[in-house]
């Protein structure tokens, strides 16, 4: 009787674990896709709403940028004070002047937010080589979208006529469950530099499942609400190491591009179900047209 109980419990345990594993596979392969598809549709709908209501440039962005810059400044702000300290002993004329110099150094950090925006800016869009001539045509740097928010839609006809995914700002894990992720600090769509986007190869809607099927000349179309940017793929998908950040440089060394230009980089995992490598696709900007003129040729074809 005792042995029967043991055997029964053991087999029940095995059945339970098996069921758990099957359920987990269902979750990973199917349920994440269901959730991601609805989340992406939601993001697309929100984008359309925002675009149709006319608020194309994210108005909230400048304030946040200023906040980020203020955060970055902290170490810089400490420097003037450190510089001020030696001044104080060197001018022991009185507590009042010390107080004034202290006030002066206090002013400096206040004045600095203007200055460091100079040094700070190279951090953010430094990947776009500042060409005065192109700056006017490209979307202004000030309209950087808020992190985690969708700001563009990507179309890749090769993946199917209905393939349209939202592009969100940032590449965090949670964010990539709701759409494609734009590497912060890389160029804006259509801008001089490298517009780099990451997406899931498998699970969470499989957006970049067929990335390895892209071939030279295939179109990758981006819309930011005002302009269609048609990129054309160059070469074959490139396989690289997971830490090869050079592939999202303004002019990626391995891409074959040699001169600064308007490039696009797509990254996903390789192999399809693994993470030992990354798969990279590069494209160059081929054409732009205003949204008012309708879908570009690459999409209607």
């Amino acid at each position: 009787m005792r042995s029967r109980t043991v055997v029964r419990t053991f087999s029940e345990l095995c059945v339970t674990i098996g069921t758990l594993l099957v359920l987990f596979v269902v979750y990973v392969l199917y349920w994440t896709g269901v959730r991601a598809d609805s989340a992406m549709d939601e993001e697309l709908g929100r984008l359309q709403d925002r675009w149709s209501s006319g608020a194309v440039g994210a108005a909230a962005a400048p304030g946040e940028q200023a906040g980020e810059q203020a955060g970055q400044q902290q170490p810089e702000g400490a420097q003037p004070e450190a510089g001020g300290l030696p001044d104080d002993p060197s001018a022991p004329s009185g507590g009042r002047s010390d107080g004034q110099s202290g006030g002066g150094s206090g002013d400096q950090p206040g004045a600095r937010p203007g200055d460091p925006s100079g040094p700070a800016r190279p951090d953010a869009p430094s990947r776009t080589p500042p060409r005065a001539g192109t700056a006017g045509q490209a979307p202004p740097a000030g309209t950087a979208p808020r992190a985690g928010r969708a700001f563009a839609v990507m179309y890749i006809p090769r993946f199917g006529a209905g393939w349209a995914k939202p592009v969100l700002e940032g590449t965090g894990t949670d964010l990539l469950k709701r759409g494609l992720g734009h590497y912060e600090r890389t160029a804006r769509p259509g801008a001089q530099g490298n517009f780099a986007v990451a997406g899931h190869r498998r699970t969470y809607g499989d957006p970049f499942k067929d990335l390895d099927e892209l071939r030279a000349g295939d179109a990758v179309v981006i819309s930011d609400g005002t302009t269609w940017f048609t990129y054309r793929v160059d070469g074959r998908p490139y396989r690289t190491r997971p830490d090869d950040t050079g592939v999202i440089d303004p002019v990626p060394a391995a891409s074959g591009y040699r001169t600064p230009g308007r490039y696009l980089t797509l990254t996903t995992c390789e192999p399809e179900w693994g993470h030992s490598h990354r798969l990279i696709v590069w494209a160059h900007l081929d054409a732009t047209s205003p949204v008012s003129r309708g879908r570009p040729g690459a999409l209607s074809a």
Binding site: G170, T171, G172, A198, F208, H275
Partner: peptide
Amino acid sequence: VFPWAEPLLPFNDVTVDNGMAV
């Protein structure tokens, strides 16, 4: 349970900087 366990699988590594920018 599954949302907690899923990131332990390798399907989330799609960036070349491991989301450093975030």
